[in-house]
Amino acid sequence: MSDATLTAPVGRPTKQTVMIYTRYERFWHWSQAVLIFVLAMSGFGLHGTHGLVPFGLAVKVHSFAAIALIVLWIFTTFWHFTTGQWRQYLPKLSGLPAVIRFYAWGILTGAPHPYTKTLKRKQNALQSLAYLSFMVIIGPALWSSGIVYLTYPWWAHAAIGTIGLPAVAFIHTAAAFLMVTFVMIHVYMTTTGKTPTHYVKTMITGYDTIELTAAEAAYLAEEEREKPRL
């Protein structure tokens, strides 16, 4: 260990373009986005909301997309705990009113966003609460009921004369409606950045320009030097 690690470098904070969303996070986000879109389209087709997909095809698409999403979530859960990134979802409730006030009014009057993205804290209070509810309520309700639904062939016989199937279908449908609502708000919120496409670009490239402390800047510079060249 060198001395440099013991005392933080001193200096003014600098604005730098740094990677906020790692490659895996972006892969996860976009593949999940595609899968959720496919699941919603095929799922609401099966539900009878629209008739854009033939029923049999919708069954296939919905089932295989669901299996793909389950696999993706298994990997992502693993990723969250090994990287400690799960802590990003711990909501800081005291920050909530300010963020809500901003989206309700401040954004219209040109007020500054009350939250500043930092290298360690990617999400504002509202975001972490929203994503937390996504990750622990909507998501699990959907995939757990979905897995039970998908495995109906193995419990169909036992379900005769019970409300098993409609109960599962109820939970799955209710959660799906919540999911669609969540996604709509989520997509709309991406247009509220510096420019309407700023957040989307960030989620594609992984890079955003944020303020770094001198210590963070030095750490990142060191990291960059140490990175193996491939």
Partner: peptide
Amino acid sequence: TLAGILIHTLARIFMRKPTTGEH
């Protein structure tokens, strides 16, 4: 939700002063 988004969007367009967004 769709209506809310629409209203919010219109409000942003018509009341807009340059926002600083997040930093």
